[in-house]
Simulated scan of single mutants.
Amino acid sequence: MKKHITAFVVLALTLTTTFANSNNNKNDVSKRVETSFKKEFSAAEQTSWSRVNDLYKAQFKMNGQVMFAFLNEEGQLVGVYRNILTTQLPIQLMTQVKEDYSDYWISSLFEMAKDSETSYYITLENGSHQLVLKSENSTNWTVYSKTKK
């Protein structure tokens, strides 16, 4: 299961900066996956489907917010994410970014939910580095990855 979560995070980070080839043909989605999605997200509107590796990705609107859900072949929900604004972060996380990473700009920020747990991922950049920070506890950030440009 941890392997799926890690794969989901990598996919979500990639998809926030690049668009995957998508196929909006509902017929490509198995009945099991579609039924599971409708049960979990009964208020979803404007759903479009695509495949990302071995997962089904549903892009949809719910309560006016664009969201993304990843489901496996069995129709089990792997995770849901949505892009958010810094003002939607818990105050402690927003303050830590402003204080500790003032020489970086934010290139992406999203909230990921799995079961009853919520995590936040933020991609920060400056002229020489790209940092991805993760918060699982909504109180502090840890470095998820760091790459040199």
Rank of each mutant, 00 (worst) to 15 (best):
F19T: 00
A20I: 03
N21C: 02
S22L: 00
S22E: 06
N23R: 04
N24R: 06
N24A: 06
N24M: 01
N25A: 08
N27Q: 03
D28Y: 01
D28R: 03
V29A: 02
V29P: 01
V29Q: 02
S30K: 01
S30G: 00
K31G: 00
R32K: 14
E34G: 00
F37C: 07
F37M: 08
F37S: 06
K38Q: 13
K39A: 12
E40C: 00
F41Y: 15
F41Q: 08
A43K: 15
E45R: 15
E45C: 05
Q46F: 11
T47P: 03
T47H: 05
S48L: 07
S48Q: 13
W49L: 10
S50C: 05
S50P: 01
S50D: 09
V52W: 03
V52A: 08
V52G: 00
V52M: 04
D54E: 14
D54I: 10
K57L: 15
A58Y: 04
A58I: 06
M62Q: 15
Q65I: 14
M67D: 04
M67R: 15
F68M: 08
A69N: 02
F70E: 06
L71M: 14
L71Q: 12
N72T: 09
E73P: 01
E73C: 00
E74I: 03
G75Y: 10
Q76S: 09
Q76T: 07
L77N: 03
V78E: 08
V78Y: 01
Y81S: 02
Y81E: 04
R82S: 11
I84P: 10
L85V: 06
T86F: 06
T86N: 13
T87G: 05
Q88F: 10
L89T: 09
P90G: 10
I91S: 13
Q92C: 05
L93M: 11
T95A: 14
T95N: 15
Q96L: 13
Q96F: 05
K98L: 12
E99V: 15
E99I: 14
